[in-house]
């Protein structure tokens, strides 16, 4: 895949480049500040862009704002936002752009190459990758989740992260069939429309959690 990176910290930038090249991606451009992001993405139209949230010049949420700006100019441009801390409200802002082709992960996840790679590919393919930390923050706010069994809550969490049925099945060591059954039961209990497609399902679940 062709990838653009926005990261100001030299150590992390080098690490990301090494890592992404290692797994066979092509880094087409690297920028170190917020204002460079939009023009660079418009020029290169990468398969996915990996953006840091906190960037110069203001060291606030430049990366996030550039992401929102980009999606307005290029709807559907896959973006994976990385951050050293996760904020529910940032996740909500990003997902407000539509959950397809959006990822929001803690930088820590980059150390788990396969999972990171998986999330990157999912986002590039128009899916969603939401950090487990954000999902658990969101889930901890909802009391009615008591209606779900512990297993169903686990499945809901993985669903909200954007994982598809086969991945959920492997993660929980259960069959895909029982994943489907759990999901059917969860959607019924939460009064959500039955749906198989990844990002629409994620959006429904997140909308529910965020309500």
């Amino acid at each position: 895949m062709r990838i653009v990176i926005a990261e100001d910290n030299v150590l992390l930038r080098e690490g990301l480049i090494l890592l992404l090249e290692e797994v066979g991606h092509e880094i087409v451009a690297v920028v170190g500040s917020g204002p460079e992001i939009v023009p660079t993405l418009l020029e290169h139209r990468p398969d996915v862009a990996v953006l840091d949230v906190r960037l110069p010049p203001g060291f606030r949420d430049e990366g996030l704002r550039a992401a929102i700006e980009t999606r307005k100019l290029v709807p559907g441009q896959p973006l994976l936002v990385l951050s050293q801390y996760v904020e529910e409200s940032y996740a909500a802002e990003l997902l407000g752009l539509g959950a397809s082709g959006i990822g929001y992960l803690l930088k820590d996840r980059v150390g788990h190459i396969e999972e990171f790679q998986d999330a990157l590919e999912r986002v590039a393919a128009g899916g969603t990758a939401l950090d487990p930390e954000v999902v658990s923050q969101l889930m901890s706010r909802r009391d009615p989740l008591d209606a779900l069994s512990p297993r169903e809550r686990e499945v809901l969490g993985l669903m909200a992260q954007g994982l598809d049925n086969p991945t959920i099945a492997t993660t929980l060591f259960i069959t895909e069939r029982s994943v489907s059954k759990h999901i059917g039961s969860i959607l019924a209990k939460l009064n959500l429309p039955p749906s198989d497609s990844g990002s629409r399902r994620v959006r429904a679940v997140l909308a529910y959690l965020n309500a």
Binding site: L11, G15, E22, Y85, D108, V110, G111, I113
Partner: peptide, 25 residues
Amino acid sequence: ERDLHDGTQAQLVAVAMRLALADRR
């Protein structure tokens, strides 16, 4: 917060990345 965020935390993430790469190779 800035010192920890830009310094220690970023360094630890970088270490994790490198160790992951080392493991892979």
